[in-house]
Design a protein around this nucleic acid. Structure first.
Lengths: 232, 232
DNA sequence: CGAAGCGTTGAGAGCCGTCAAACTACGTGG
DNA sequence: CCACGTAGTTTGACGGCTCTCAACGCTTCG
């Protein structure tokens, strides 16, 4: 692992406050692994072996049920995932596969739990991280229950622009079919929703999205701090 | 507060492992309050003042957005709620109101956070509680994205029977309109979904639900351990 | 007895999914 | 360089799911 990456992980909220000694022991127990694109990382229902930290590339969490499949989340570096399953030794509620080639740090689940028991500061960070994760899913649940598909798309555009620097222009970072699944609609319906938002201040060109009239888009999307805000 | 209730709280997962001294200090800082039915307890967007523990009665968490409203959860004793907001001092993502008269223990949020910082065992319990809460919402998100309304109803029936003793007979513990909102559908649609499940081994009489042919119901509902299982 | 609230039913419209076909972009091999 | 194949996307047609609106019956309670 590259030194600046160790730094980066150590400086993230989850690991920042813990004893250096414990952090080292986590890192030395860990495996850094490269995966090619479209490789299955986790199977829903399995028990967790490793806490995963995505350092590079992209990963999708998805779930299948009775012939249907939906994307739960798309993960970009640097992000730790399946934390809730790891700390409680619970079976995964979703499967994971790489979207592109990815570098992932694998920390043995047993080590994470052992150090969570020993290191109070780490345990406090886990509390914070899990409460944020909880709120993230809660927001997504509200997004699904309180909005129709065009509104979900419009707010996704606002949010994505927001995290990519508010330049008013960005590129959809994957298939449109994946975006459709993430937003909870069919690919065909996403096409139509894209046409709909085009009538509300957005210009589209392939995967390039340009927000030409932010106010008109916001009027249509009606973003809410208790659904869309990212960082708490 | 009644002595057996203090026992009951202390013996719950969240408080069981913490130092007695810290538990006492939480309880002495707490207020026990009675609320009549249909009283607003919390407003979405506010900051948390107290951790709430429902001792008696019923509470609903709900959220409004752009003229729509949906019930997020219906809470029955003994259950603590809004934990994620309290530990991180984050604004509520949902509002809460009593369904019936309720007795609620209110522990100052500041005390909870202070003792979470001091008591490592309590912090570990919080980790566990929050990971379970996370998984609960995640399951609900999957329920919404992967099932249609009749399937959600059928699985709700199976789950409700399951927690009420698997007798094959129970009473819907509130309005049907609330059940509809909880399940993510309109009241009219719930009526029709009830007709649908009646064709799959369920007998209905007002709010009384009788599962006459569990196998047929299960065949229709297709319950899944990674969506419906309650306790992990 | 009358009023009000809840639940059900029917009609209609809109949202959304499925299926099929056409179109596009892109890369490959001839 | 071009023809072609493939995967992704778009469009149209259609049907089904779900919501809204309205009417009606039932129960409860004043």
């Amino acid at each position: 692992m590259r030194p600046h990456e160790i730094e980066q992980i150590k400086s993230s909220h989850l690991f920042h406050d813990m004893a250096d000694e414990h952090f080292s022991s986590l890192v030395t127990a860990a495996y850094l692994q490269r995966f090619p694109a479209h490789v299955q990382l986790l199977h829903e229902g399995d028990r967790p072996d490793f806490l995963h930290i995505l350092l590079e590339g992209g990963v999708e969490l998805y779930s299948r049920h009775d012939g249907r499949e939906t994307i739960i989340a798309i993960i970009r570096p640097v992000t730790t995932f399946i934390l809730a399953a790891v700390v409680g030794d619970f079976p995964y509620l979703a499967s994971a596969r790489t979207l592109e080639a990815a570098r992932i740090l694998l920390i043995p689940a047993e080590s994470v739990r052992a150090i969570a028991d020993k290191d109070a500061a780490f345990s406090r960070s886990l509390v914070r991280e899990l409460s944020l994760a909880f709120r993230g899913v809660m927001r997504e649940l509200k997004n699904q229950k309180l909005r129709n598909s065009a509104e979900r798309l419009a707010n996704w555009i606002i949010r994505t622009d927001s995290v990519s620097g508010r330049s008013g222009r960005f590129t959809i970072p994957h298939d449109k079919r994946r975006l459709a699944s993430l937003l909870g609609m069919s690919p065909e319906n996403l096409s139509r929703s894209l046409v709909t938002v085009s009538g509300h201040g957005v210009k589209l060109n392939g995967r390039t999205v340009v927000i030409e009239e932010p106010d008109r888009l916001a009027t249509f999307a009606k973003p809410s701090t208790t659904i869309d805000e990212a960082e708490n």
